[in-house]
């Protein structure tokens, strides 16, 4: 089984790589198989690992408040019947409302309070020039970046200048993320090459 498996895996790997040249039947084959297999895998694993413990086991244990979730779940399925499909909005409303409330405080704290808290730093650190400069740059960068995100004021004059500085900071940061990611992406490719040349063909060990 293992040898056949490795051969199949290697051919599928080549099939996906062939997309880099152009779209072709080999890629289409891999793609359509991948969609079917992955959708099936996801359904099966979610059923056994989430549905059974979260719903079935709880109902068997007599925790009937889980029925409420099940009822909303069934309402969701009513979408398949056009006449009563509107009932699925109740389930949708529960999902959206609950998470909107949840995310409200989550974003307020982690994206608001915590960031402000981290940026409250002294602009002058006695006897430490590099930290003084660093702190100044952080405050100026955050400040000008926020100015860039102002929607109700035109980017003109001094305000526009600061907004421009802000976008420079943003681009610098994007470049940093970009450069930071390159290595990890290369290692993914090396991993695949290693599979083809090592595990499959045995050319490298």
């Amino acid at each position: 089984m293992e040898t056949i498996g490795i051969w199949i895996a290697a051919l599928l790997t080549l099939g996906i790589f062939s997309f880099l040249y152009k779209d072709n039947p080999f890629y289409k084959f891999c793609e359509s198989l991948f969609v079917g297999i992955s959708a099936g895998y996801w359904f099966v694993t979610t059923f056994w690992q989430v549905f059974m413990p979260k719903l079935a086991d709880n109902l068997i244990a007599g925790r009937f408040y889980y029925m409420i979730g099940a009822i909303f779940g069934v309402l969701m399925l009513l979408r398949l019947f056009p006449k009563i499909g509107w009932l699925s909005r109740w389930s949708l409303a529960l999902v959206v409302g609950t998470t909107a409330g949840l995310y409200f405080t989550r974003y307020l704290v982690s994206n608001g309070m915590v960031q402000v808290q981290n940026t409250i730093i002294p602009l002058y650190v006695k006897g430490n020039l590099s930290q003084t400069i660093g702190n100044l740059v952080i405050v100026i960068g955050t400040f000008s970046g926020l100015i860039y995100f102002f929607f109700s004021k035109e980017h003109k004059g001094a305000f526009g200048g600061l907004a421009k500085l802000g976008i420079w900071f943003l681009m610098l940061s994007f470049g940093a993320s970009f450069g930071y990611t390159v290595m990890s992406r290369m290692s993914l490719l090396i991993g695949r090459m290693d599979y083809l040349l090592g595990t499959w063909l045995g050319l490298i060990r």
Binding site: V116, T119, I120, P122, L123, V139, T142
Partner: peptide, 10 residues
Amino acid sequence: SLALGALAAS
């Protein structure tokens, strides 16, 4: 708040 905070911290 950032500006006041930086001054306060200084």
